[in-house]
Design a protein around this nucleic acid. Structure first.
Lengths: 138, 138
DNA sequence: GCCCGTTATGCAGCAAACTTGCATAACGGG
DNA sequence: CCCGTTATGCAAGTTTGCTGCATAACGGGC
């Protein structure tokens, strides 16, 4: 099974260059010896949590603006959770900001010391929420 | 798949009575509606970490050690959550210990008064996390 | 050492889950 | 409304997991 290695390659490619389309990424993968279709690439990006931002794919890493406000990272978990990592003690403040944004896909949030659990209805909403929260803190 | 339920039954049986052999346990299981061979029971005991001590099977020291440090139980919930029950007031301390362990499958944790939610990426990771946390507190 | 009761394990068969490509639907900018 | 791009239902092929059978390995008692 080459899925794992292909995804690793995708991560390094996404990190190294500005990739605008899945077709482009598919071609780069093929040049690296990983033959796959756009379907698979789409699913890989989904699993890896890579999002398209400003016209190119990028790791869902919190921006400087977000870090300045306590948000360090966002990760999907299962189908219905998004986990936000925050600087110690700031999770509640970040959660309040997220709650106030009134993002429709969010069912509810729970904040601990440095972590927030954000409940969403289903997988599709995870990416939307990650994107919107990043925008909120960008 | 009845493996999980069978193992739960094994745990309750081991907790409730003095069971001296796997044959005996197999018979008790069958009486409870779980038909399985000694092979499977052997593998179950291995997975559950049940050991033979003083001539009968007993729950591993790991659990006792864990209780001494505030952790009372671990249960999967849905596909992406593991719920840890703790002694009142100790959830945060237990959560800190879990966080510090740096278990790779864990996406994030949120601690309440006596309960911790542990987010994992998917179902497969639940078992791994439960096992690793138990080892941590053993 | 030799039995014999007990436990562990290699192997094969079956079932469930995963991965993938194809075709096509859904989305979104212009 | 188009068209480039991305997501997804479906089916085929593959992998992984669970199980029982047969049997090997272990361990206490003699």
């Amino acid at each position: 099974m080459q899925k794992t290695k292909r995804q690793q390659k995708i991560m390094s490619l996404v990190h190294a260059r500005r990739i605008g389309t899945q077709q482009e990424l598919t071609a780069l993968l093929e040049r690296a010896g990983f033959v796959a279709t756009q379907s698979s690439v789409s699913r890989d990006l989904e699993e890896l949590g890579v999002v398209k931002h400003n016209g190119h794919y990028t790791l869902p890493r919190a921006t400087e603006g977000a870090a300045a406000r306590g948000l360090l990272g966002l990760d999907p978990a299962g189908d219905c959770l998004v986990v936000a990592k925050c600087e110690p003690g700031l999770a509640s403040a970040v959660a309040v900001a997220i709650d106030r944004a009134g993002i429709e896909e969010i069912v509810g949030t729970v904040a601990g010391e440095d972590t927030i659990f954000i409940a969403v209805p289903e997988r599709k909403a995870q990416r939307a929420v990650i994107k919107k929260v990043l925008e909120l803190f960008g």
